[in-house]
Amino acid sequence: MKNQLRTFFRKLRVNIKERGTPRKRLLIFLAIGLVTFLTFAWFITSDSVQNKFKSGNPLFDVALVDDFTPPNEIKPDTEINKVVAAKNTEEIDAFVRLMVFPTALKDGEPFEVQLGDQVQLIGLDATKWKDGEDGYYYYLDKLAPGETSSNLFEKVKLVIPNEQKDNYKDVTFDIVAKTEAIHTRKYDYRISWWETDDPQTADPLKTIDETLAEKRAE
Rank of each mutant, 00 (worst) to 15 (best):
L38H: 12
L38Q: 12
L38F: 06
T39L: 10
F40P: 02
W42A: 09
W42C: 02
W42I: 13
I44S: 09
T45A: 11
D47I: 00
V49E: 10
N51F: 14
K54T: 09
S55C: 13
G56Y: 06
G56S: 08
G56P: 07
L59P: 01
V62D: 07
A63H: 06
A63C: 02
V65M: 12
V65F: 03
D67V: 10
D67W: 03
D67F: 04
T69A: 08
T69R: 09
P70D: 03
P70W: 11
E73C: 03
P76V: 12
P76S: 08
T78C: 02
E79N: 12
N81Y: 04
K82D: 10
A86E: 07
E91C: 04
E91M: 11
I92G: 00
D93S: 13
V96A: 05
R97H: 09
R97A: 05
V100A: 12
T103Y: 06
T103Q: 08
L105G: 00
D107C: 03
P110A: 05
P110I: 06
P110Y: 10
D117M: 09
Q118I: 07
Q118K: 14
Q120S: 07
I122S: 04
I122W: 07
G123M: 07
A126D: 14
T127R: 12
T127M: 07
D131G: 07
G132P: 01
E133S: 08
E133I: 01
D134N: 15
Y137L: 06
Y137N: 11
Y138K: 03
Y139H: 09
D141Y: 05
A144N: 08
P145D: 01
E147S: 07
E147I: 03
E147D: 10
S149K: 02
L152V: 05
